Amino acid sequence: MEPGPAGWGRELYERVLDALGTMTGGPLLDVGCGAGELCRLAVDRGLSVRGVDANPEVLAAAAQLVPEAELLTGALPSLPIPDRSAAAVTCVQVLMHVPNPVAALRELARVARPGVPVVVTVWGPVEQCAFGAFGRALAPFLGGPLPGGGGRGGGRGNGRGNGGPRPLSSPGRLEKLAGLAGLPAARVEEVRCPFDYPDERALLAGLYAAEVGRRAVAEAGSRASVRKAVLAGLAEYRTVSGGYRLENTFQVLVAHA
């Protein structure tokens, strides 16, 4: 879970579902389904849905939000899904968190029926993701930036350091990885999703509810230290009304199995 405001992902989820086109002959598989927000929108569009996530707690939340969905525990690159069984595959904001993106993409291709869409999203370029301010503010507690934070690239985060792989958001990078994984002729689109927080309380509530926020508090020893660092780090994004607005770009990879 990212420390974003409630409902931040709706525009991104809608773009992902639009990219699927017309689906027939089976369920949509949402890998890394989290609390089920995309699954809910998909069911509301009349789709059959199956969700997979590694976290039993968020799957329990998804079961409440989308009782129509089949929900399974699992994670990339080894999904509990038969070969060629999905009528489409979505994977939103997961690829940045896996050690081997090619292996993860290859697994998405395995579970998709031939010719069906596979849609994956990652953070856009660092300079287009104000969300990175969270990572810079929390780095003293966590020892490094958050994905998309300017250090969710070739496996962990969207920045390059110590001669590591190029960021996933680098020009042509996602398309190349998809080709290596057996997903040729992929294209990448961009979508802007601002994170809007009405006030300081909302900003911090989202952070404390996220795993990264809980880790930061545990390392810092108190919420007060985390609060001070975050408010200082995000001061430039404060609006005249006292809220916060962080503009972000996401990349949407659209391929076919």
Score class of each variant (00 low, 15 high):
residue 73 T to V: 08
residue 225 S to N: 12
residue 137 A to S: 11
residue 31 V to P: 00
residue 32 G to A: 00
residue 87 A to I: 10
residue 7 G to I: 14
residue 229 A to C: 02
residue 88 A to K: 01
residue 96 M to V: 13
residue 112 A to E: 11
residue 55 N to A: 08
residue 19 A to P: 03
residue 19 A to K: 02
residue 169 S to M: 05
residue 109 A to G: 03
residue 190 E to R: 13
residue 204 L to R: 11
residue 163 G to Y: 01
residue 105 L to E: 03
residue 113 R to C: 14
residue 146 L to P: 10
residue 160 R to H: 02
residue 37 E to R: 10
residue 28 L to R: 02
residue 43 V to T: 14
residue 193 C to P: 06
residue 255 A to N: 03
residue 11 E to S: 08
residue 95 L to C: 06
residue 4 G to I: 06
residue 63 A to V: 09
residue 250 F to S: 14
residue 236 E to R: 15
residue 110 R to C: 02
residue 251 Q to D: 08
residue 113 R to A: 15
residue 197 Y to T: 05
residue 256 H to Q: 14
residue 81 I to R: 04
residue 20 L to C: 12
residue 96 M to I: 13
residue 206 G to K: 03
residue 130 A to E: 14
residue 69 A to Y: 10
residue 182 G to P: 12
residue 55 N to C: 07
residue 92 V to T: 12
residue 188 V to L: 03
residue 62 A to N: 02
residue 128 Q to P: 11
residue 149 G to D: 06
residue 124 G to T: 05
residue 246 L to T: 09
residue 228 K to P: 06
residue 77 P to E: 08
residue 146 L to E: 10
residue 1 M to C: 08
residue 69 A to Q: 11
residue 16 V to S: 11
residue 136 R to K: 13
residue 189 E to V: 12
residue 175 E to D: 07
residue 168 L to E: 05
residue 237 Y to F: 12
residue 250 F to T: 10
residue 55 N to G: 02
residue 61 A to R: 14
residue 224 A to G: 04
residue 198 P to T: 04
residue 143 G to V: 02
residue 30 D to N: 09
residue 194 P to D: 03
residue 36 G to Y: 02
residue 117 P to C: 03
residue 248 N to W: 05
residue 221 G to E: 04
residue 34 G to P: 11
residue 244 Y to L: 07
residue 257 A to L: 13
residue 208 Y to D: 09
residue 95 L to S: 04
residue 137 A to F: 03
residue 129 C to S: 10
residue 162 N to K: 09
residue 84 R to H: 08
residue 23 M to G: 07
residue 69 A to W: 10
residue 98 V to Q: 07
residue 107 E to V: 04
residue 73 T to N: 00
